[in-house]
Design a protein around this nucleic acid. Structure first.
Lengths: 120, 120
DNA sequence: GTAAGGGCTGGAGTATACTCCATGTCAAAT
DNA sequence: ATTTGACATGGAGTATACTCCAGCCCTTAC
């Protein structure tokens, strides 16, 4: 039902220190047991996975922080969060285009190098 | 024929400080004029553009440094550079797959949010 | 001839995102 | 009863990639 920080660390692949850091930065707010120890839930796992997706798509922690704040504020912030997601989607598409462009140039460069190499 | 650091900064979009930093890190080695001022060439522009592509595809400066070292060492390092480019290509493809996967999940999330929003 | 506008260097400072450490609590095992 | 192991906190330290600054040198414009 609940994960200790150690177990949750293994589950998410994030270090214990990172989990505590994320909490300090208000990205995640796990419950505490009677000994003041963090108790993470399945829902926290889903949430962390989403955070990691945002990170992987190069969203800075600050922005994830804003999103988290809205999320923890409840359902009435849904519209605002949706706006953020739409904007982020655009930036991811942009990133994808850039990546494809870079890949194209990289392939060309490799091609040129290989030709030069063969003719030696 | 030659660009001063100020002009080269405008040309590349990199700040003067960044250009000097890249030189300190041996990424680029512009010539100097009789007053010890940097003189960048068209070739340097091509090279910087390539560096920026590597950066955009998330290659750390350290690795770009290694590549630069080989490049400045001359033609006999071509094979080694080619190997680096091949490996980097794989990592870019990997990044692209990851990005596409994240995009898919993002779209799903947006879809769910919009449904929830409409039904309110 | 002096002031402004570049450029130079070495070194300190900054932002981001962690990562490590000292010190302390608590519960279970020996 | 004490050691072990997992957890807690506050705060310092680290890596990466810049960014800024003080103090100095030249050249050109007024």
């Amino acid at each position: 039902m609940y994960f200790s920080i150690g177990d949750f660390s293994k589950l998410t692949g994030l270090s214990i220190d990172t989990l505590r850091y994320y909490e300090k930065e208000n990205l995640i707010r796990p419950e505490r047991n009677k000994h003041n120890q963090r108790q993470y839930t399945e829902k926290d796992k889903t949430w962390i996975d989403f955070i990691l997706r945002l990170k992987e798509t190069a969203m800075p922690l600050r922005e994830i922080q804003n999103y988290a704040k809205l999320r923890y504020a409840g359902d009435q912030t849904m519209k605002e969060r949706l706006d953020m997601l739409h904007m982020h989607r655009e930036s991811v598409l942009e990133k994808k285009k850039q990546l494809e462009n870079n890949l194209k140039h990289l392939d060309q460069k490799i091609e040129i190098y290989e030709k030069a190499n063969r003719s030696k």
